[in-house]
Design a protein around this nucleic acid. Structure first.
Lengths: 199, 199, 199, 199
DNA sequence: AATGAATGAGAGTTCATTCAT
DNA sequence: TATGAATGAACTCTCATTCAT
């Protein structure tokens, strides 16, 4: 790996990451083989190793790519000056939209990251924790302004939002006909109002 | 294969299924190897094939074991004579409790079933659909009795409940210290009331 | 690797070690391939791994096999009650005979042991040092009894004997027509008398 | 390939040969890789092929470089007008000094030459035989002048000298603290007088 | 004179699976 | 009912080599 800096190199590496994302998402890390990845980007199997030191490194890069900018989004949302409900909508929108755009990479992050070597996994974990903590912060803010019920456990709430988004994310990835905005709207409605009739 | 029906045979097969569940849950179907499964139940690799025709069959059995009685529960719940909210609580309770008892098998069903050959997968799918449809039914009933808001999309609602339960199920499997009943209570609270202040 | 204790297992493993010795001796560790080893013993490549965890382990076993009983011989010789010259003859005989019997394994020990992982290498090194030290001891004894000139450096002498035996060992392995006893006799003659005319 | 004759080209090729020598000496021919060689001389892997047609050719050049001038030395020594013992000292000195200067190349010649294609190997072999024959000649001369015992087998003697020098050469390469002249002196002492007390 | 990119052959290793015992 | 031994296919990874630039 010499031409690490070249324009073409950087570009091809991106292609490789996306190809890996697709294949890992479909077959899982262990079920996928490097040949599939290489073929998907139009090179031969061995050539993949010009871009990744190992299959594992490819997984790492895919995971990183998957969450990176969705974690960044969250920072923007959390720091913005909006009422609670707007922030919640923004969060769900960002999260689910990510699934449409970086669909596979995000799915891979969720399902396969645990096959990463410890060192790499904990670096990613930090990013994930940041995300959850900021979301918790949004709920706490909501409690202070009175938008959120006092009885709500903010830690639980953040986890639940993430869990639900990921569950729907899976469905979104699998079924490309799903109307993204409908899902977003219904999710936020559930999170805000629950299913039962308001008295 | 002589004593296929023997008591001991049946019992050992159950042991095998549970061993497979554990191993598949931890390493995924492709990441796991038959040797691991065999060792976990104290027999040698080759002997596994006395109980399963193939690794794939083992996966099938695990998945079936994973959802079987939780689907049956649902039938009971749906057919019972209770108000909407009670049925919802019962559903969440049943679903999450399953994760504590058959934890791994259920996780395997969720994460690995797609590696099953088509025929087998669609048989399981039917069970899954049954489950979702009955849950949808509960929501529709709720609407009729006025317990559920008219604006709620029952299909979406059922999916959302399942998604959230699975997301928490994952956490439950991973972290055995989580208080199951607390989770159940908070989930139902969210589903019923949402997070925002009731007016 | 289960049947570690079986008779057949132990026997086949020995066969494997000898096959590996032959192949490593001929092509060197890195130049050899596991397929060659397997074929030489009449099994398929993959089956080799029933007997060795890795190619490297095979190398380790070959090296051990190569020096083991020749180190043991040396202990017997050193502890025996013979005059210096008899011990020297015995040493050269034992060393060179080993090359005829375990020819390849010994060659492999000499040429390839440095490709072993550190841990294993140092365990072998200890055996080698033992050998040299005992040989040194023989020379020191020789000095005391007056058989060896006072000016001789015993450390150097031991090293030289070993070096010469290995050099001839190589030739012996390569050329199976060489008369072993002639070589032994000439070597000891050189070591005892040198090449020049006695005054 | 335009500037094949250029001064810079010739010089770089020498650098390449020496780099190859070092790497082959350390890892063996098959254990070494062209990337290592390239890196050691500060160029990229592919660029090596500007200087060598193949890895094998590199090995050939290294071997040649290794023995060339030490064979030439021998011619000078053999043709000189000196008594036997002086010639023997000169031979040992030349041989062992070579190890200090061209250490790796000579080691490579000894250990790896057999991986050369036949044609090239036999060309080198001729050089080696020349060397041995001239050395044999020295011993025969010695016999005629009465310096060497009549009972000595000249062919064996030459072989033994070479063998011992190579064995010590190995140690010299490995341990750079060894006092070269001490080794030379002790070797010649052994070859001339043997280890036992002169009567 | 040198390099980045790619290739393809082959290596070591793993593993589901089979089968005689 | 279970096992030891073996297999063969698949997979990851390495590397000598090529070639346009």
């Amino acid at each position: 790996m010499t031409g690490t800096g070249t324009f073409k190199y950087v570009q091809q590496r991106q292609t490789a990451i996306r190809a890996a994302a697709t294949v890992f998402a479909e077959k899982g890390f262990h079920g996928a083989c490097t040949k599939d990845i290489a073929e998907r980007m139009g090179i031969k199997q061995g050539s993949l190793y010009y871009y990744f030191k190992s299959k594992e490194e490819a997984l790492g890069e895919v995971c990183l790519y998957g969450i990176q900018n969705y974690v960044e989004h969250m920072a923007t949302i959390a720091d913005s000056e909006q009422p609670f409900e707007a922030k919640l909508v923004a969060t769900v929108t960002s999260h689910l939209s990510s699934y449409r755009e970086r669909n596979e990479a995000l799915k891979v992050y969720n399902d396969e990251r645990l096959y990463l070597p410890k060192a790499r996994r904990s670096r990613l974990k930090k990013l994930g924790s940041d995300y959850r903590q900021r979301l918790e912060g949004i709920f706490e803010e909501g409690k202070e302004t009175g938008a959120v019920r006092r009885s709500v456990d903010c830690h639980f709430a953040a986890q639940a939002v993430i869990g639900m988004c990921n569950a729907w994310g899976d469905l979104i990835v699998r079924d490309s006909e799903l109307d993204l905005f409908e899902v977003i709207q219904k999710c936020t409605d559930l999170l805000i109002n629950g299913f039962t009739k308001q008295s």
